[in-house]
Design a protein around this nucleic acid. Sequence first.
RNA 1: GCACCUGUAGCUCAGCAGGAUAGAGCACAGGAUUCCUAAUCCUGGUGUCGCAGGUUCGAAUCCUGCCAGGUGCACCA
Length: 572
Amino acid sequence: MLELRNRLAESIVDFLKENGIDPEREEIIAQFKKPDNIKFGDIAFPVFRYAKDFKLPPVNIGKMIKDYFESNPLHEIEKIEVVGGYVNFHVSPEWMFESLVQRVKERGDDFFKTDILKGKTIIVEFSSPNIAKPFSIGHLRSTVIGNFLRNLFKALGANVIGINHVGDWGTQFGKLIIAYKLWGDEKEFKKDPVKHMFSLYVRFHKEAEKDPSLEDKAREAFARLESGEELERELWKKFRKHSLKEFEKTYKRLNVEFDQVIGESFYSGKIESVVNLLEQKGLLEVSENALVVKLDDYNMPPCLIKKSDGSTLYATRDIAAAIYRKERFNFDKMLYVVGSEQRLHFRQFFKVLEISGFEWARNLEHIEFGLYRFKDGKMSTRKGKVIFLEDVLDESVDRIRKIMKEKNPDLKEKEREEIAEVLGVGAIIFNDLKNDRIKDVHFSWEEVLNLDGDSGPYIAYSYVRCNGILRNAREVEEGFVPNFTHNSEVLLVKKLFEFSEIIDIAYRNRKSHFIANYLLELTRSFTTFYHNCRVIGENKEVSSFRKTLVKLTLITLKSGAELLGMRLPDRM
RNA sequence: GCACCUGUAGCUCAGCAGGAUAGAGCACAGGAUUCCUAAUCCUGGUGUCGCAGGUUCGAAUCCUGCCAGGUGCACCA
């Protein structure tokens, strides 16, 4: 469609030039619009703004453009209509179908992939849970959004490095160490390490309200950890090991992989060189006994580099990590998938890098997203007010399992289990990715687990039907000659054709909801087609053509779901 | 207090490099199954696009101000 727009724009530029107007092609392309209603065609060009130049009503100009195209016709265009001030181009569905088929013949299942990012190295830092805390539904967002971006950039040909920047360093570990020393229970820990650590963490904050000296003790404990004291180090290793093992299970369920899992602790040895560098550049100042970089000139509060007790902070480690990664991977872009509440933090350390002379700092992006919130406010790990992701996934799988028993009782137990897992987890992933990530998600079990309408299972169901048809229509040969006999076929082909453009939009905005919504629309187009057009039992030409439409729908649904990181079952 | 984000149908949300009567899902009512899985499809919308100005041939979309909710603003991450 992009190429077609280019060609249309070129013709319009020629036409306008003949009439003494000299616009850029890009300018024309920007004016193209996708009509709200399909009856107005596929590409619309509004001509209102030229009324003054031509000293004619828009309709007349539209007619002139139409005439121009009719004397220089494009085979991709089936029909041109002038309505009001618009020139509406109706793209030939036959041409769309043939282009799609051609593409699939050439590229197979990779038909939607491109190489626009070939040769580029892109780092996506995502998930990054705190290993002192359990994996809550709050961590789901960074995980699935990051995974989506990793998939997307890969599909566009980039060399992508997905990094799980595990939160395994910081004062929180001081807290955990103190709490473990005071109230830790070896037996409880062995039984369920993560839950036990969580209860210690919550208890720490509760007790610290009564006894604020605990906070100081925690900071001291972290300082000892950072300076390499044996006892603290051992405890830390123990906490870390068990947490990572636990997280691994969750990642497996979510079908998420990382190219690198490096904790913040990894950078603790690289802090001094950062401090020295900032010192050299004359950016470092002592303020209230701490080391800071002042950012007054950029309308930001100072960025804290070292606490007054000499231990490091989040920002320091992020700066060290960025420099390290630039040296190691020489990335073209680095994206941080982290909640929007940390926006200031990112602006600050991006700026510190920039004024330190690292020009590549402008290739850093904070991919922010809204947080999960309850009716009565924010989730808080500290207060123990948190929903565990595992519980959400289990509940979702449970619900699916029940529905499956009802709808398809003939499935074997083992197969049903596998499919319920795929559908249940997929439903949660889809639910998270279907809305603009910038918005907060109001958590309610009802909504997260809602399986009606705009949901993962809805898409999966269409996919399953496609598979069913292909299984039952083995005898039918695929047909590559367009043979439209019903309007729903035309609408389906047009929807299928949109896919590449949607990928482009999702890429430019780094947002998954464009793809999620597209998949819902495609599914709707398909089910309408499904209800109106049978594949099996029609004459040869019709059956063959329709079989190919089903095949195209199948691979498009699969590809879109793959980008989102959602698996689809062959039956359900 | 300052900065940023959000505000669209009863609810959850699309649409916002300006463009045609502002669209989905849920909920509610009715209908469709001799036929590729009815987890489906079809029919039914009188919405102050938070409010008020401005720019424009044209504003949900851009600008300004205000209101509401959220987030952040030095030793947490």
